[in-house]
């Protein structure tokens, strides 16, 4: 079996830059508006800052918030990595990476360690992020309370009062009914002890990586027109109860390709008779491990 992504790791260097658009596609007024929102978001960790989200040439719901944030921070010296479901080669990640290669002419990479900006949908890379890196999340629904209270004016009031009883009651009812908290992704977190925040639909397995992360975390919700942020080394706690502490879960298996028992796994159906295999969702992590194992084997031979 071929390692996912191995063949196209360096294939994208030749994307042509488009002319007729400003660097990073957005006009300077729009960038300034987003930059101001970003600074306030960093200053108020976990608070959703409304912004004048623009129509982008990609559909709402397909990463327009993350794209606008990336477009407002990116410079010619950056190296951009884009992942969707943890993988660099899923179609939407390819499409967004090409967009930035065309409108900003920036270098792109699939290696987490080499990137200065990582734009993501639904995952946090397994390789710990470091200072000097920025993680940009694509967010579909920024409001953590939206399933419990759809009225935006009302949730704004609840955040102002730091009244998160709706969410506590919901989680408590889960436990009373089933013995477990039934939320497995988009698992709500408290940021710096003040704001309840949606971590975007990452699996709850990834939540602990947000806590005191060395990199800056920025969140963009284009359709809902909100930006929020978690500064480096900031406390991010998954909501739980003393007698029901938060437990991140993953499939109880090892990656078929690299053998990892630590990484988050995709379950792949291999036939119609119940056959399953598990592989890392983070393609860069998996490929890097396979490479190391390959060279270790060669050295031994």
């Amino acid at each position: 079996m071929m390692a996912p992504g191995a063949e196209n790791r360096s294939r994208e260097a030749a994307v042509e830059t488009v002319t007729g658009y400003n660097f990073g596609y957005l006009d300077e007024n729009t960038k300034r508006m987003i930059r101001r929102a970003l600074l306030k978001a960093v200053a108020i960790p976990g608070h959703q800052v409304p912004f004048g989200s623009r129509e982008m040439p990609l559909p709402y719901g397909w990463g327009t918030g993350g794209i606008q944030v990336t477009a407002s921070i990116i410079g010619p010296g950056d190296r951009l990595k884009v992942i969707d479901q943890g993988a660099d080669d899923t179609t939407n990640a390819v499409s967004i990476r090409r967009f930035f290669a065309r409108v900003a002419g920036v270098g792109t990479t699939e290696r987490t360690a080499d990137a200065t900006i990582v734009q993501t949908r639904h995952r946090i890379p397994e390789t710990p992020l470091r200072e000097g890196q920025v993680l940009v999340y694509q967010v579909p629904m920024p409001e953590p309370l939206f399933r419990l209270e759809p009225r935006v004016a009302e949730t704004k009031r609840l955040h102002a009062l730091a009244d998160y009883s709706l969410m506590h009651v919901k989680l408590y009812e889960d436990i009373a009914r089933t013995g477990h908290i039934a939320t497995s992704y988009n698992y709500p977190v408290m940021v710096n002890g003040r704001y309840l925040m949606s971590p975007s639909p990452i699996p709850a397995f990834d939540n602990p990586k947000m806590h005191r992360m060395a990199a800056l975390q920025l969140f963009g919700a284009g359709r809902e027109k909100r930006i929020y942020a978690v500064p480096p080394y900031t406390e991010v706690r998954s909501l739980d109860f003393e007698d029901h502490p938060f437990v991140p879960i993953r499939a109880d298996a090892a990656c078929e390709l690299c053998g990892s028992r630590e990484s988050y796994l995709d379950e792949v159906v291999t036939d119609d008779r119940g056959g399953r295999m598990f592989v890392c969702s983070d393609t860069d992590y998996c490929t890097t491990r396979q490479g190391t194992q390959g060279s270790a084997r060669e050295a031994a031979e």
């Binding site: 300034r32 970003l38 921070i73 410079g75």
Partner: peptide, 16 residues
């Protein structure tokens, strides 16, 4: 365009 971008990244890093 590019000078504003570079300055913004400095301010963003400073605020973060």
């Amino acid at each position: 365009v590019l000078d504003a971008q570079a300055c913004f990244r400095a301010v963003l890093e400073a605020m973060a």
